[in-house]
Simulated scan of single mutants.
Amino acid sequence: MPIHSDSYKFLDNPVWHALQTVHKNFSLGTDEICRYRPGTLQILGCENPGKVDLNDLRQWIMEGEKLFMVGDLAAPAPGWTISRKLDCMQMVCESEENLIQEYTEEILPLMEDDRSEMLELINLVQPGYFHEDTPLLGSYFGIRKDNKLVAMAGERLRMTGFSEISAVVTHPSHTGKKYAQMLVSHVAKKIMNEHAVPFLHFVSTNARAGKVYELLGFEERKIITFWELIVEKR
Score class of each variant (00 low, 15 high):
Ser166Arg: 00
Glu96Ala: 09
Val15Asp: 05
Tyr103Thr: 09
Gly128Lys: 04
Lys189Cys: 06
Val125Phe: 08
Leu110His: 04
Ala151Met: 01
Met89Leu: 12
Cys88Ala: 14
Val168Cys: 14
Glu155Phe: 00
Met152Gly: 09
Ser166Gln: 00
Arg84Ile: 00
Pro14Ile: 10
Glu132Ser: 13
Lys233Trp: 10
Leu200Met: 14
Lys177Ser: 09
Asp113Trp: 00
Ala75Leu: 14
Phe202Ile: 06
Val52Pro: 03
Asn13Ser: 12
Lys211Cys: 15
Ala196Trp: 01
Pro109Phe: 14
Thr30Tyr: 03
Arg234Ser: 13
Asp87Lys: 12
Pro172Ile: 05
Lys51Asp: 11
Ser5Tyr: 07
Leu121Gln: 06
Met192Ser: 12
Tyr103Ser: 12
Gly161His: 04
Gln181Trp: 01
Ala209Glu: 11
Thr205His: 08
Asp113Cys: 06
Pro14Thr: 08
Pro76Asn: 11
His17Asp: 06
Val92Pro: 00
Arg115Phe: 09
Lys148Trp: 00
Lys211Thr: 15
Phe199Gln: 02
Phe202Asn: 04
Glu106Gln: 08
His131Gln: 14
Leu119Ile: 13
Met111Cys: 07
Glu105Thr: 07
Gly210Pro: 06
Gly79Val: 05
Ser163His: 03
Ala180Tyr: 11
Glu65Lys: 00
Met111Glu: 09
Cys46Asn: 03
Asn123Leu: 01
Lys51Asn: 13
Leu44Val: 15
Gly217Phe: 13
His131Met: 13
Leu200Ala: 09
Phe199Glu: 04
Val22Ser: 15
Glu164Cys: 05
Tyr213Met: 12
Asp31Tyr: 01
Ser116Asn: 09
His174Asp: 10
Glu47Arg: 06
Gly71Ile: 15
Leu215Gly: 15
Glu194Leu: 15
Asn98Lys: 11
Thr175Ile: 15
His171Thr: 06
Asp53Tyr: 05
Thr160Lys: 03
Asp6Val: 14
Gly39Arg: 05
Leu11Thr: 15
Ala196Asp: 03
Leu121Asp: 06
Leu149Asp: 10
His4Trp: 14
Lys222Val: 10
Asp31His: 05
Leu149His: 08
Pro76Phe: 07
Leu110Met: 05
Thr160Val: 04
Thr40Trp: 02
Ala153Asn: 01
Tyr103Lys: 05
Asn55Gly: 10
Asp146Met: 08
Lys66Gly: 00
Leu86Thr: 14
Tyr36Phe: 11
Arg35Lys: 09
Ala75Ser: 12
Met111Gly: 03
Val22Ala: 15
Gly64Ser: 06
Asp72Arg: 08
Gly176Val: 13
Leu11Ser: 11
Ile100Asn: 02
Gln101His: 09
Ser139Tyr: 10
Lys148Ala: 15
Trp227Ile: 12
Gly154Met: 02
Ile43Leu: 14
Phe26Val: 10
